[in-house]
Design a protein around this nucleic acid. Structure first.
Length: 465
RNA sequence: UCCUCAUUAGCUCAGUUGGUUAGAGCACCUGACUGUUAAUCAGGGGGUCCUAGGUUCAAGUCCUAGAUGAGGAGCCA
């Protein structure tokens, strides 16, 4: 059977004409039956739902169906009929069966019954075949598509920033080294240090931790740009919210101040969630039923409410007055801890919160300094359950102020001369933010571990598949 | 990286104050059943109790170290 004959399961279930001769291909989820009739639930990933294929054992032999067990891949042809059973609108009355790939039922690891997420991580090559991962991966795709659509519809240019970087100044954490040198035979300088001039790029190279600095270069020409690509952090983070390799979206906009930046971030997040609510309703309903009863209402909460905007200073006042014991003390100048952020979002305001104007000491060198000399125009968007989902700021566009901050923090000027150049030649007020893609998928799917919202997670001590 | 917990059949787990031959459900195999919905019913096979030491007449159970996993924290997106 050829693909041209095949109809996707989603189309058969939603709009298949009763009485039509149809063909389908997919993987067997379950088989049940007796000597006279066999039922197979067939899934091709086009939807969470499987189509029921009915085999009349007067037409098919037991031998033909013997090796068609959970996990096998088959092609079937038959008549689409109204289902007398209660679980589905239509089913295929099979007249032809082709086994494309058997799956030995004694050794195939996936069963009809539930598996733990930990076990499924060990078989990440097969877990897309489960209902849960099918739903998560379809939602992940929908979000990725919606991100491009949102920006494209608003005239943003998709800018491909480098994955390998020679700059160590991004300041967002430990980096992975990229080298072609033989670790057992490293070239040395006369002083005995490693001679990086002998390496592939003639200098030390790393995997990027952020495309922001390059995105700013794009914004200084194209006005509005965004990046959407892989990002790497070599931190030894072992939490349900961190990956060593993850995807990040970083819009960067000329002429936007911090208010414009917040407006964009809020509108963007609401658009994405609304998109999934309407286009992935089946998958969300499944995840809600299986894992998280409040999933849809939590998404609706974000879409329906104006995000609360307040300054860091005001937030510290609220936390100091809160009748609550903190593991970490709250005072002006301290970085806010998870417990503080969660209190603001989940207890005090009960909706997403945007905090602005943080002390400059706890934020990056490129953020625009306020006139008070103490704070910078940073903004963090905090969400229920997962905490910080977006971090951004208005950027410092004044050459002298940026240079003095760089000097204060000891960033080598030779590493960022090109970044400083944008402030020398035609500088402009501009802003941007970073959104961790998997954090967004985590929030939208209600999964509890970030390793379960990316097909092949990379974490400390884990690089299989 | 720190703290806590866990590791027993393919999967999920039970296993009492240390004591005879380590159990259950599901999965798998065999059989029954003329429309099932994670089908049902009957029977069967299946174990390096994470690893290495130690205590003891006796260790799945107690002690030490390690490995792996999870949760919390930090770092952050």
């Amino acid at each position: 059977m050829r693909n041209s004959e095949r109809v996707k399961v989603k189309n058969l279930l939603e709009s298949g004409t009763v009485g039509a001769e149809v063909a389908a291909m997919g993987w067997v989820r379950t088989k049940r039956g007796n000597k006279s009739i066999t039922f197979i639930a067939l899934n091709d990933g086009s939807t969470i739902n499987s189509i029921q294929v009915v085999f009349d054992m007067a037409v098919f032999s037991e031998d033909q169906l013997k090796n068609v067990a959970t996990g096998a891949c088959i092609a079937v042809r038959g008549k689409l009929v109204e289902s007398p059973g209660s679980g589905q609108r239509v089913e295929i009355q099979a007249s032809y069966l082709e086994v494309l790939g058997e799956a030995d039922s004694a050794t195939y690891p996936l069963q009809k019954k539930g598996h733990s997420m930990e076990f499924l991580r060990e078989i990440a090559h097969l877990r897309p075949r489960t209902n849960t991962f099918g739903a998560v991966l379809r939602i992940r795709h929908a979000l990725a598509f919606a991100i491009h659509k949102y920006f494209n519809d608003r005239g943003f240019i998709y800018l491909h920033t480098p994955i390998i970087t020679g700059s160590d100044a991004e300041g967002a954490g430990a980096m992975f080294r990229v080298t072609t040198l033989d670790p057992n035979n490293l070239p040395r300088t006369p002083e005995g240090k490693i001679d990086w001039s002998e390496d592939f790029f003639g200098k030390e190279a790393k995997l990027t931790v952020s495309g922001q600095l390059e995105a700013e270069l794009g914004a200084m020409a194209l006005s509005e740009v965004y990046t959407f690509g892989p990002t790497f952090r070599a931190e030894n983070s072992n939490t349900p919210r961190h990956l060593a390799e993850f995807w990040m979206i970083e819009p960067e906009m000329a002429f936007y101040d911090i208010q414009d930046n917040m407006d964009l971030a809020e509108d963007f997040l609401k658009y994405l969630i609304r998109y999934v609510l309407t286009s992935c309703a089946d998958d969300l309903e499944f995840l809600k039923k299986m894992y998280d009863d409040e999933l849809v209402s939590r998404l609706q909460l974000v879409v329906d409410n104006k995000f609360e905007r307040l300054t860091y200073t005001r937030a510290v006042e609220i936390l100091e007055k809160a009748n609550q014991k903190w593991e970490f003390p709250v005072f002006w100048g301290a970085d806010l801890q998870s417990e503080h952020e969660r209190y603001l979002v989940e207890k005090h305001f009960s909706k997403p919160v945007i905090l602005t104007d943080y002390p400059k000491e706890i934020k990056a060198f490129y953020m625009k300094q306020n006139d008070d000399g103490k704070t910078v125009r940073a903004m963090d968007v905090l969400f229920p359950k997962i905490g910080e989902i977006i971090g951004g700021s208005q950027r410092e566009e004044n050459y002298q102020k940026l240079l003095s901050r760089i000097t204060e923090l000891g960033v080598p000027e030779k590493d960022v001369w090109w970044y400083l150049d944008t402030r020398k030649f035609g500088t402009a007020p501009h802003s941007g933010f970073g959104l961790g893609f998997e954090r967004l998928v985590l929030f939208v799917t209600g999964m509890s571990n970030i390793r379960d919202v990316i097909p092949f997670p990379r974490t400390p001590k884990n690089c299989e598949f």
